[in-house]
């Protein structure tokens, strides 16, 4: 339990790993837009090639990225089935009572599930190649301009930093409390769902009390170290764009351009 890794960061030093976190977040958003623009087989094919290209660049094992699809596998399969079995269209391939498999339905199902798979893979490449701490810096920097409309950029980043710092500590504590309560005869594994949820109470109460105490201590310690919010605060680590970041942006915009062309452009293919 002590050996937990937060998020799913896969350490490395590839071109993708070294990109500025802001670039990675924005490029991910741009590529998501590109995925939504795609509506032809050629478009989806191009996107698949692109994802493979990025994975190759990042040095991540392909299976690792593919596994990120797993949590939503059920929804992907369901999407495929529903579209296939209930789709509307003229070219009926097979019909049984009200179930009708049409060519259009199958196409739609494949497109929709491809879309989900691509979205998952693209966004997980971001979290695989960026440590949560760097990601926090990136989010803070990107949200900073929105402070004028009341987005608490610094506060959000501070909360994320403290959460990242204390999650391991609280995990250790949970472990300790579970052991202490087990030693006192607490039973966490029998009974129905409700009984089990009830049995969690002796863990949660001490954990919450201690978390509040920690929060109080930490607030005092932060104040003692001159913390007074984000106003006038500097950062030791400065984010800086490099040539690679420009290339990444050009690439992401090019993908959007390509998808837009395939969707609305003259039908060349």
């Amino acid at each position: 339990m002590l050996d937990i890794t937060l998020g799913q960061y896969y350490p490395g030093n590839s071109f993708i790993h070294r990109l500025d976190p802001r670039t990675k977040i924005l490029a991910t958003l741009l590529l998501i837009v590109a995925v939504f623009l795609a509506n032809t087989a050629v478009g989806y094919g191009a996107l698949c090639v692109m994802v493979l290209f990025i994975i190759a660049l990042s040095g991540l094992p392909f299976m690792l990225v593919l596994k990120s699809v797993k949590p939503l596998l059920f929804i992907i399969v369901l999407t495929l089935l529903l579209h296939t079995l209930l789709g509307q269209g003229e070219h009926v391939l097979y019909q049984w009572k009200f179930l009708k498999v049409t060519e259009e339905g199958v196409q739609m199902g494949v497109k929709m599930s491809m879309r989900l798979i691509l979205l998952l893979m693209i966004s997980s490449i971001l979290t695989f190649t960026t440590s949560p701490i760097v990601l926090t810096d990136g989010i803070e920097a990107l949200l900073r301009p929105f402070r004028v409309i009341g987005v608490p950029a610094h506060e959000l980043a501070m909360m994320m930093t403290i959460a990242l710092r204390f999650i391991p500590t609280l995990m250790e504590e949970t472990d300790r409390i579970i052991k202490a309560q087990t030693a006192r005869g607490a039973d966490f594994s029998s009974g129905n769902l409700l009984a089990r949820a009830k049995n969690m109470l002796p863990i949660l109460v001490p954990l919450f009390i201690s978390a509040f105490r920690r929060a109080d201590d930490l607030a005092v310690a932060m104040e003692a170290r001159c913390y007074r919010g984000g106003e006038g605060r500097t950062r030791m680590h400065q984010l800086a764009y490099h040539a690679g970041d420009a290339a990444a942006f050009v690439f992401a915009f090019a993908m959007i351009g390509l998808m837009a062309f395939l969707r609305w452009g003259p039908n060349v293919l």
Binding site: P132, I133, T161, I162, L164, R165, T169, R213, R214, D217, L218, A221, M222, R225, C226, Y227, R228, R233, T234, R235, M236, H237
Partner: peptide, 19 residues
């Protein structure tokens, strides 16, 4: 435990001067 703010040692030491 309750006086370390950041998740990396040097970031924590930098917390004061950053403030």
């Amino acid at each position: 435990d309750n006086q370390i703010v950041a998740a990396i040692v040097e970031e924590d030491v930098a917390f004061g001067p950053e403030n």
